[in-house]
Design a binder for these strands. Structure first.
Lengths: 150, 150
DNA sequence: TGCAGAAAAGTGCATATGCACTAAAATGCC
DNA sequence: GGCATTTTAGTGCATATGCACTTTTCTGCA
């Protein structure tokens, strides 16, 4: 093995100080945990809640559409849906027009759970919003959207 | 089963339009994928890069300290470290002062890989930054920090 | 000194995540 | 109509993630 390669300490500090990825991931984990706490009594995670809401708000979305909406891999979505389907919170049916497409919709049970969760969501969302300086919020909102689309 | 519970469509739309969690998670996944692409030729993921950089920048950090720094669960960190240790990118040693604490440091191999990755990081970080309107960036930066601490 | 409690790290479990690959169905071009 | 191409979804695999619980070690106080 050669000598230790020269690692610029300044560059390293730049990573810690200015890495967009690190910053976003850290915030994402912290926020996710917070919503997870709020939904735990319903045995829901933050993304499961988002998923249920997305399904209900959309009219029979496909797996692809849901994956795109939540910004996650399609195959991850497939498996996430399977978990909620096993809990009978949602159902999937083949599209009559296109045999490849599966249409997802909530069961009454899923709708009921979502209804119960909305309250916790509102409280938590308000609290999390309050943690961000009001002056910074709109720009952060816009910035996050830019990142999600980039 | 009762009648379908009444789900306010407006409230549902509010979730999609104003859920901080959804917004942050979506951005987080998009950004993470982007860095993952940039590091793939080195067989590194975005958080593995962040972890290597954090280890090198710190002087022999403990597992706890690294977990806190990256904002992830301590037990997740334990297992993430194990993967990199198996690849001989880092080594762990018991703290001589405190037998409970494990100190983590990079091997020469790990340091070399980090050095190689820094280039890809700088390019990607610049590109991702450029995707956010310059006027929004400082506030977003501050907002993310607030969220991570909340 | 000895022991209760705190702190650091690891394990078992379930599920999440994404990539490479596969299977099935639709589309378009000839 | 027939076949190459594209689109949609699922599987195998490896690893990530966090919670509950455990083990080991340290700290502080009687």
């Amino acid at each position: 093995m050669e000598d230790t390669p020269s690692l610029d300490p300044l560059l390293l500090r730049a990573v810690e100080a200015s890495c967009v990825c690190l910053r976003v991931q850290r915030a994402s984990r912290a926020v996710g945990r917070r919503y997870d706490d709020a939904f735990r009594h319903l045995d829901l995670t933050n993304w499961q809640f988002s998923l249920l809401a997305a399904i209900e708000a959309s009219e029979a979305a496909s797996v692809n559409e849901l994956a795109t909406f939540l910004g996650m891999d399609r195959t991850t979505m497939t498996r996430n849906l399977a978990v909620l389907q096993r809990r009978e919170l949602l159902s999937m049916a083949q599209d009559p027009q296109d045999g490849r497409v599966k249409r997802v919709s909530l069961t009454p049970r899923g709708r009921d759970l979502l209804l119960q969760a909305l309250d916790a969501w509102r409280r938590t969302n308000d609290a999390v919003k309050a943690a961000v300086p009001a002056a910074a919020f709109p720009a952060m909102w816009q910035g996050l959207e830019s990142l999600a689309r980039s």
